[in-house]
Amino acid sequence: MGSVFKFKQFVVDQGNCAMKINTDGVLLGGWATEANVSAVLDIGTGTGVIALMLAQRYPGAAVDAIEIDEVAAQQAAYNFEVAPFTNSMQVLEGSFEAYQDSDTRYDLIVSNPPFYTNALHNPDARKKLARHADAPFFEKLIAFVAAKLNDNGSFHCIVPTELADWMVATLLPMHQLFLQAELEIRSFAEEPVIRKILKIGKEEKRLQQDGLAIYAERGVYSEAYKTVLKPFFLAF
């Protein structure tokens, strides 16, 4: 993949980002929806791709994007500047904890977080920062979300299956949050679930569960995958 990725309505230059555009991120951006969205927050925006997908989906919504890596933050800011959207878009450089005291609340919060918990650390410092997180990170993340989410809003994140189940069982009850929907993602229909996208909110609702296989066969994307990304991808 080159440094520039062209979508239907915007372009993302990812040349200076340690973590490039990936399947997890675009699936999250394609699936994350909420009613009456006027304020969006993307935590760990990287290239800015998810924030841009949501700016396309919600014209006029204010979109904030937090990024701890200085170079990636600059890259995302550039991608926002050249985007054709009328949204108010800004990058907030630093950790999400640095914005804990802000009074801003959001209707939709998204995150494609680092989740290589307990994995062998990457020797590249920037990739290590982008990829690795331990349990305390997710404890702080959920606490932050609970503080920043509007009562009718929702938080969407994509994580591996075991991590998703631990978050739901352990972290959500601590902050009076509820799992409202989940999408189980497989590479192929007959294979185990490798990721879950969780929709979390402050209201307890009947759980909506669905599944998606990325490939119909080797090298061929499934119709479900193409449907999620059709509004954004040129190829679909």
Rank of each mutant, 00 (worst) to 15 (best):
V40T: 13
V49P: 00
D42Y: 10
A35K: 14
D13P: 03
N36C: 13
M53W: 11
T45M: 03
G60K: 11
T45S: 15
D24P: 12
T33Y: 07
R57S: 13
G29E: 02
G15C: 12
I21N: 01
A18C: 14
A18Y: 12
C17S: 09
A51K: 01
V26S: 04
A51Y: 03
A61H: 01
N22A: 14
Q9H: 15
G15P: 10
M53R: 03
P59V: 05
M53H: 08
A51C: 09
A61M: 04
C17V: 15
I50V: 15
D64C: 14
D42M: 01
A32D: 13
V63W: 01
A61P: 04
G30Y: 00
Q14F: 12
A39V: 10
G60L: 05
G15D: 15
T23F: 01
I21E: 02
V37A: 07
A65I: 03
V49H: 01
D13L: 06
A55N: 05
T47H: 14
P59Q: 06
I50K: 00
Q14K: 10
F10S: 01
W31M: 09
D13M: 10
A32H: 06
V11C: 13
I50T: 09
L41P: 13
I66D: 03
G15F: 11
R57T: 14
A32V: 11
N36A: 13
Q9A: 13
D13I: 06
G29A: 10
A39D: 13
N22T: 06
V11Q: 15
A65V: 03
L27E: 01
N16L: 15
D64E: 11
S38C: 12
K20G: 01
Q9C: 09
D64L: 02
G48F: 03
A39R: 15
V11P: 00
V26H: 01
G46W: 09
G48K: 01
A39C: 12
T33I: 12
T47L: 04
M53T: 06
V49C: 04
T45H: 06
I66P: 07
T45C: 15
V40F: 14
G46N: 11
A62P: 00
I66S: 08
N36T: 09
A39G: 04
M19I: 12
R57A: 14
V40M: 10
N16T: 06
Y58A: 07
L52C: 08
L28C: 11
A55Q: 02
L28R: 00
G60C: 06
G30Q: 00
G29F: 05
I50E: 01
T47F: 10
Q14A: 09
E34V: 05
D42K: 03
D13G: 07
T45L: 01
A65Q: 02
A51T: 08
I21A: 02
V49Y: 02
T23R: 03
A32R: 03
A35Q: 14
L28Y: 07
G46T: 13
T23Q: 06
A51Q: 02
A55G: 13
L41G: 14
I43T: 12
T23A: 04
G48P: 00
I21W: 11
